[in-house]
Computed example of a mutant assay.
Amino acid sequence: MPRPDQQGIIPVLAEVAGEVERAVQRPPIRPSTRTKFQVVALLVREERARTMADATLGPSRRGEQLKRLDGVATMLARIAARDTSLLHLLDDEARVSDAARAYKAQLMRAGGLEVPDEPEPTPPPAQAPTVEKRVIPQSVLSHQLSNPFLAPDYSGAAQRIAVKPRRLAGWELLEPLFRSFEEASAGAPACMPLPEPRFVPLPPGRQLMPHQAGVVAAAAGGHRTFLLADEPGLGKTAQALVAAQVTNSYPLLVVVPNVVKTNWAHEVGMWTPLRRATVVHGDGDTVDAFADVVIVNYEILDRHVGWMGDFGFRGMIIDEAHFIKNKGSQRSQNVLAVSQRIRERIARPLLMALTGTPLINDIED
């Protein structure tokens, strides 16, 4: 007769996680291995929620179950750190295939759980229409009229995918996953090193530090999405501006807090003196739409979301990115709306988020 710790769904999940961990050590990874990884992750989350809600479990028994689930979670985190291509399976919008659903039902039966009927997806609630003030500065209209070609028509683009329920929202594997990025299984650093710095022409008297030059080299080598979380004072602004220069990501949109708008314009002149910066104030009556760098603050971005999304920016920098940690806030929605439009219009735009405090309260930030 099996021991109590060998009964239930957790030993089944641990066994499958072990199979996946052994498989990722022998690349390439097969589709069946990816399916197993995703299903185990889903079941760990569901089992954790069930354990937390089970009123029949005493504190000691509940703590024991959660500790065992953490063991499986740590295995999955090591797996994801070894093969980062598995990370997209943990996304909120990751598709669960029919094969994954069937395998999930198989594991649940093996663990003695009842397999529920697959619920029908619930449509997103209709949002009440809101009246927003949107403006188009005169300079932007002049910029549009200066183009001898007709404005592109995107009406034939594919329909937007409806927002689906967030399947892994509040996922408990985040903490061990991020831990695994800091330390590999053998205790060695798990982060990919930056490439060797390259020569970048800079204005006289300006010089990049090694960590700045590494980021610029990565951008020059083709990397286009960055989260710069260096401590304050280590030159994130310079890194971003020089990265935009080496990738020719102009026109460039920079979204910043109001108090540093003019400082960003000054930094543009210091690090990329051949590029012209313009600062958006209020409704943008004084904005220069022919400038290379457009700087706007979070507080007035809602007025300019419309024209900025269609302007043709080839890059976007978000300063003090912890301002948009709450994805449900209007501020965050404005930033995400503009960045999404840039992604739809431009192939591989430069997208950089800058913050000296990526985790303000907890790892969910």
Rank of each mutant, 00 (worst) to 15 (best):
T262D: 06
N263F: 09
N263A: 10
A265M: 09
A265K: 10
A265D: 07
A265E: 07
A265R: 05
H266C: 08
H266W: 08
E267Y: 06
E267H: 10
V268A: 07
V268I: 12
G269F: 05
G269S: 08
G269T: 08
G269R: 13
M270I: 14
W271K: 11
W271G: 02
W271C: 03
T272C: 07
T272Q: 11
P273T: 08
L274C: 11
L274S: 14
L274E: 15
R275C: 05
R276S: 10
R276H: 05
R276K: 14
A277R: 10
T278E: 04
T278M: 03
V280P: 00
V280W: 07
H281K: 14
H281P: 00
G282T: 03
G282V: 06
G282P: 05
D283H: 15
D283R: 15
D283Y: 12
G284F: 00
G284C: 11
G284I: 01
D285I: 02
D285T: 12
D285Q: 07
D285N: 13
T286N: 13
D288G: 09
D288H: 08
D288M: 07
A289D: 02
A289S: 08
A291K: 00
A291T: 05
D292N: 08
D292C: 14
V293R: 04
V294S: 03
V294I: 06
I295P: 05
I295C: 04
V296K: 05
V296W: 07
N297G: 02
N297S: 13
Y298A: 06
Y298I: 01
E299K: 12
